[in-house]
Amino acid sequence: MTLQGTNTYLIGTGRKRILLDTGEKNVPQYIANLKKVLLEEQLEIGKIVLTHWHGDHVGGVEEIFNNLSPTASVCKYRRKEKADDFLPSGIHIDYLNDGEDITTEGATLRVVHTPGHTTDHVVLTLAEENALFSGDCILGEGTAVFEDLHDYMKSLSQILELKPKVIYPGHGPVVEVKLFHP
């Protein structure tokens, strides 16, 4: 269901980075690899941003928060239909707003609410590279599933208007966009 697994991204150029999505719960190899990168590069996670509530994107939050980045803030868009009770009760969520900018050294991410896959789904544009982190709205290969086809199609139209040069998906390989950029 998730192709090769869930892609997560460390975003920024400074010591404090943004971690986009956290993968599934109980994947010790992922936590070990992330820890190794953080130590070798002398980095820390300042913010954890979640594209949506599915377990393959939020499952690693508790392990990362408790073992690697206890001071990181956890951010996501609020779900409409029910509470965000999929995270452990001890982790505070800062709720994102459509159009909000999230910054760290070397990166400005703009939150774009793109419902359809889930009601709380967001994509993030990286201003410095005209890039898009697409979560599960656009995959590197294959077809995404959706809760609401109408909302999903509107979200895809919204992404077309952004005209990204490259798409970093939640699953699958990076997508070089030739449609807008000859």
Rank of each mutant, 00 (worst) to 15 (best):
M1A: 11
L3P: 01
N7F: 04
T8M: 05
Y9N: 03
Y9Q: 10
Y9V: 06
L10K: 11
G12Y: 06
R17D: 00
D21Y: 00
T22E: 01
T22M: 00
T22H: 00
G23Q: 05
E24H: 07
K25Y: 13
V27E: 11
V27Q: 09
P28R: 03
Q29V: 09
Y30F: 15
I31S: 09
N33D: 12
L34C: 01
K36F: 03
V37Q: 04
V37H: 05
L38A: 05
E41S: 08
Q42S: 11
L43S: 03
W53L: 09
W53K: 13
G55N: 14
D56C: 14
D56I: 01
G60I: 03
V61L: 12
E62F: 13
E63A: 15
I64H: 01
I64F: 12
F65N: 09
N67T: 14
L68S: 05
A72F: 07
S73W: 00
V74Y: 06
Y77H: 13
Y77Q: 13
Y77N: 12
R78Y: 08
R79A: 12
A83P: 09
A83E: 10
D84S: 08
D85Y: 07
F86V: 02
L87H: 09
L87R: 10
S89R: 11
G90M: 12
G90W: 10
H92A: 14
N97M: 02
D101W: 00
T103E: 05
T104L: 03
E105P: 06
E105F: 11
A107I: 14
A107G: 13
A107Y: 10
T108Q: 14
H113V: 11
T118D: 08
T119Q: 06
D120E: 15
V123P: 09
L124T: 13
T125W: 09
T125A: 05
A127I: 05
E128K: 08
N130E: 15
A131G: 12
F133C: 12
S134F: 07
S134W: 01
C137K: 01
C137T: 15
C137V: 15
I138P: 09
G140P: 10
E141H: 13
G142S: 15
T143G: 03
V145S: 12
F146P: 01
F146V: 07
D148K: 14
L149Y: 02
L149D: 06
L149E: 15
D151R: 05
Y152H: 10
Y152C: 02
K154C: 02
S155C: 00
I159N: 04
I159E: 02
L160W: 07
E161Q: 07
V166K: 07
Y168P: 06
P169N: 06
G170C: 14
H171Q: 14
P173C: 14
P173L: 10
V174F: 11
E176D: 13
P182H: 11
P182Y: 06
P182L: 04
